[in-house]
Nucleic acid binder design. Structure first.
Lengths: 204, 204
DNA sequence: ATACCCAGCTTGACAGTGTCAAGCAATGGA
DNA sequence: TCCATTGCTTGACACTGTCAAGCTGGGTAT
């Protein structure tokens, strides 16, 4: 059998290639059209042969899925960090999560776009959806801590917050709305958007 | 020179092929992964050779762009029809537009998704963006007719309405939120969403 | 009427892609 | 020392978008 008991295996020489492939894919996603994200281009960037990726990612969808799963993990980490360094007020925490969400999306727009497309979530054996659910869980808990008006239950609150923030960044990323003139228009608009949400997440 | 004076040309035998290619592309978009939308598959469906599409659409992006431009035209038409058959109240008209928008997106989810991706809007010499702007204009005028609270100017109103509805359908299409249990949950949720928008578009 | 042109489509080719199959090299355990 | 497994390579296949040529038939010009 000789099954290495999880000890020495990946330590001796870490899978440079796997990491290099992931980084190549991540950079290709942000730097060109989706059609340019090819396994062979990733392999060239990583300095390996055209068939090497198959050893780590059975198919193209699996490589892309791995990048997108990492994206969701990164997003969740940012949301948690923002939440934990915000004030104790539940809506302030929710707002901090929203701003972190927007910052992530605008920092990696192409990745964000792909993360939210069902067709890109097929590979990686469901890991993408698991990571996405983890993100949703962070939002869910933050919403659950707010006190909302009658008729806005947890699910409705999550849906409303998520659709507003996602709709905003999605339209901005794809150039269909702008926040108006000014360099920091996006942040101003994001702040205003979250303020507009306030009535649904506060009960006075 | 012999430049036909725009009269007889496309009448004699209408461009069946062009229409067939557009329809093939539209059906491929809705019936499979994006990678399956190939010029050659469209050509096979239309019963022409693999290079025939080049005569109507210089590149693949142009064919897809043409389908998406038609999508925006269709969407605008549905929005206008819904608006004109709604009650005279400005918010009722806005809500009718929103419901038509959601219905369109859910009836052609893959097309809708592609319409809102910047990378798919390169071809067709800007026709996609023109059609998208036309859609935005319909929304803009509907918003302008509402009476809103202080601080919600036209632009903010348009952004708020659009991001809410787009965010909702985008998340639903891609399976990240659901409207809760029940067959008509999506419509119920859509209705609730538009009601939640109401405070931003009414001044009592 | 005859020559001609050209729009509309065809066949053929090329580089590039994802994926599969086979093979090589080295590392580590028996 | 032998051997098996891991990690990667080369090679091949079908498929893709795009370009270059060639064919064909209906219209115009002479």
């Amino acid at each position: 059998m000789a099954m290495t008991p999880q000890s020495t295996g990946p330590r001796a020489r870490p899978d440079d290639v796997r990491a290099a492939l992931l980084q190549a894919a991540a950079s290709l996603i942000e730097s060109g059209p989706e059609s340019a994200i090819s396994l062979r281009a990733c392999a060239r960037m990583a300095g390996v042969s055209h068939a090497a990726p198959a050893h780590y990612f059975p198919t193209r969808a699996d490589l892309i899925g791995a990048v997108l799963a990492e994206g969701f993990d990164d997003l969740a980490a940012r949301m948690i960090a923002a939440r934990d360094s915000a004030q104790a007020d539940p809506f302030a925490r929710l707002k901090a999560i929203g701003m972190a969400y927007i910052a992530f999306a605008l920092s990696r727009p192409a990745t964000y776009d792909m993360m939210f497309q069902r067709s890109n979530r097929d590979g990686a054996q469901g890991r993408v959806m698991t990571a996405a659910d983890h993100c949703g869980g962070v939002l869910w808990r933050a919403v659950a801590e707010t006190r909302r008006p009658e008729g806005v239950d947890d699910r409705t609150g999550v849906n409303f917050a998520w659709m507003a923030v996602h709709g905003y960044v999605s339209l901005v990323i794809n150039g269909l709305i702008d926040g108006g003139p000014g360099a920091d228009a996006i942040e101003v608009m994001a702040d205003r958007l979250l303020s507009l949400l306030e009535p649904a997440f506060k009960r006075e």
